[in-house]
Nucleic acid binder design. Structure first.
Length: 328
DNA sequence: CGAATTTGACCTGCGC
DNA sequence: GCGCAGGTCAAATTCG
């Protein structure tokens, strides 16, 4: 499949708009021209084949460019299926084309399927008490097609591979990635009973870009509540959640097909992605990048469905940022 | 000393 | 069936 990548958006990777300056991908993105994202857009692995995995990267640095969606929510309206929210009132944009979905993707759009996937993850957490015999791995049902949790990926421009998203992760593996000099790291949420996994890999073409993929749904709140960070506080096990963020939200969108809820995070010090290493200088600059202008629709907080990991992450209330604050 | 990471081996799925 | 690549395990090692 051929995909297109808007070169102007490519330029958006310049840090001028902040650490996480986004770009726009669309269907015709020539992955050969930017192999740093080939792992996603070529979908070489079952991670992208078997999962309903959509990936978007929004160029906030050119949001005044008519070639790009006028707002981040334009992206949402294009990329995501209609939300049970006023998102449908957002003007549509043809600039961003949904990342190619696999033939399998249709089969994962049902909630039952997602539930099955969640169940699988829950079950997998019990496989650790394996027999003490040499190296007997968990027996997998052969006839049962492996179903994956919905995944959400995002790119961050950072020197740091493992971004602190407020949860505690334990690294359980690392693998070399084909066609990439950078390894992929595998993390698992350390909270007991929480089967959320995370993959972190660095773009082969642009080593400053880190691609993080979340899989699964946290069964708990974030143990870390950094001040000034966006927090999504699950108020019940079902639908409602509370968003507390005082940062500008912009830029990056991820979405999976089983959920109509987009995922985004902020471009300045990201709301829930704070750098946890010593090289904070790259992100916690004394002069954070200017906020990005967009006019978010008022997303009804109460109408949020269970969106897995999104439920933990997606801000439902976005602040309207004055446009004059946006100074490229 | 417990927790976290590293790392090689192993398993699974898929394409040929 | 074979080989490859992704994903996971768990012993060894490192770290705090």
């Amino acid at each position: 499949m051929e995909k297109k990548f808007e070169e102007e958006s490519m330029m958006g990777f310049d840090d001028s708009a902040g650490l996480y300056s986004p770009a726009v991908f669309s269907d015709d993105f020539p992955s050969s021209n930017f192999d740093s994202f080939s792992s996603i857009f070529d979908m070489p692995c079952d991670a992208h084949k078997a999962s309903n995995f959509d990936f978007y990267y929004y160029n906030n640095s050119s949001n005044n460019n008519s070639d790009n969606p006028s707002s981040f929510f334009d992206l949402l309206s294009t990329a995501a299926p209609p939300l049970s929210s006023p998102a449908s009132t957002v003007p549509e944009s043809s600039e961003v084309v949904n990342a190619p979905t696999t033939p399998n993707s249709s089969s994962v759009s049902s909630s039952s399927n997602e539930a099955a996937a969640i169940e699988e993850v829950n079950n997998s957490t019990t496989t650790h008490d394996k027999p003490s015999s040499s190296k007997v791995l968990k027996p997998k049902k052969k006839n049962q097609k492996k179903q994956r949790e919905p995944r959400f990926a995002f790119m961050t421009k950072s020197d740091i591979d493992h971004l602190d998203d407020g949860y505690r992760w334990r690294k359980y593996g690392q693998k070399a990635v084909k066609n990439s000099p950078y390894p992929r790291s595998y993390y698992r949420c350390t909270t007991a009973g929480c089967g959320v996994k995370k993959r972190v890999e660095r773009s082969s073409g642009d080593h400053t870009i880190v691609v993080t993929t979340y899989e699964g749904q946290h069964t708990h709140q974030s143990p870390i509540m950094p001040r000034g960070s966006l927090r999504v506080l699950p108020e019940s096990t079902n639908n409602s959640l509370t968003v507390d963020h005082d940062t500008t939200t912009t830029g990056l969108l991820f979405q999976h097909n089983t959920s109509s809820q987009p995922f985004m995070y902020s471009s300045p010090p990201p709301p829930f992605l704070t750098i946890n290493s010593s090289s904070v200088a790259a992100t916690s600059t004394p002069h954070p990048p200017p906020p990005i202008s967009f006019q978010p629709p008022s997303l009804p907080q109460a109408s949020v469905r269970d969106h897995g990991l999104l439920q933990d992450l997606v801000p439902l209330q976005m602040r309207n940022e004055p446009k004059d604050e946006q100074n490229g």
